[in-house]
Computed example of a mutant assay.
Amino acid sequence: MKYYVSISTFLSLALVITASTVLAGQGPETIDLKATYKVEGKKSAVIFSHHAHQENLECSKCHKSSAGGGPLVVEIVKLTTTKNDFHKKFCWPCHVEMKVPKGKSCKTCHPK
């Protein structure tokens, strides 16, 4: 059941991001990853600054389409604990690769 919920959540998010990209020309300003992806955990929500990332990265760094929006380059399936797929496959590896200042600090993304 969780698998189907994750897929439907992801597809809904892809549709929202795609629609937002078309309407705004650049996608949503921010994305609440915990609410959008139903991430379970004790840490505070990551409010992902989509526009700030767009200023420094090509859309294809995160999205399968070079035009941006839609599916991410990695599949986000595990949504529990600090070893969720955002940490293991997506955000953390990119922060390490890009040498983000304070990129290894929890407080960089989780303000509380």
Rank of each mutant, 00 (worst) to 15 (best):
M1Q: 03
M1I: 04
K2W: 08
Y3D: 14
V5I: 13
S6V: 10
S6R: 10
I7E: 11
I7N: 08
I7L: 12
S8Q: 12
S8R: 14
F10Q: 09
S12N: 12
S12V: 06
A14I: 10
A14Y: 15
A14W: 15
L15Q: 03
V16Q: 03
V16L: 10
I17P: 00
A19R: 00
S20V: 12
T21I: 01
T21M: 03
V22N: 00
L23M: 11
L23F: 11
L23G: 04
A24C: 04
Q26V: 07
P28F: 10
P28V: 13
E29Q: 09
T30E: 03
T30P: 00
T30I: 02
I31G: 01
I31D: 01
D32E: 03
K34P: 02
A35G: 03
T36S: 15
T36A: 15
Y37K: 02
K38L: 11
K38R: 09
E40H: 04
E40W: 04
E40Y: 04
E40N: 08
G41M: 04
K42C: 05
A45D: 09
V46C: 00
I47N: 07
I47Y: 00
H50N: 15
H53P: 00
Q54T: 15
Q54A: 15
Q54D: 08
Q54G: 15
E55V: 14
N56S: 14
N56R: 15
C59H: 08
K61M: 08
C62T: 01
S66W: 08
S66M: 06
S66Q: 08
A67F: 13
A67W: 11
G69L: 14
G70E: 07
P71V: 06
P71E: 06
L72R: 05
V73L: 13
V73C: 12
V73E: 04
V74M: 05
V74P: 02
E75W: 14
I76R: 04
V77N: 12
K78H: 10
K78R: 14
K78N: 13
L79E: 01
T81A: 00
T81K: 03
T82I: 11
N84V: 06
N84P: 11
D85W: 07
F86P: 08
F86W: 11
K88R: 11
K89F: 05
K89L: 15
F90S: 10
P93Q: 01
P93M: 02
V96L: 04
V96Y: 02
V96Q: 07
E97M: 08
M98C: 07
K99N: 11
K99S: 09
V100H: 05
P101Y: 02
P101C: 03
K102V: 13
K104M: 05
K104H: 07
S105M: 06
C106R: 12
H110L: 06
P111Y: 07
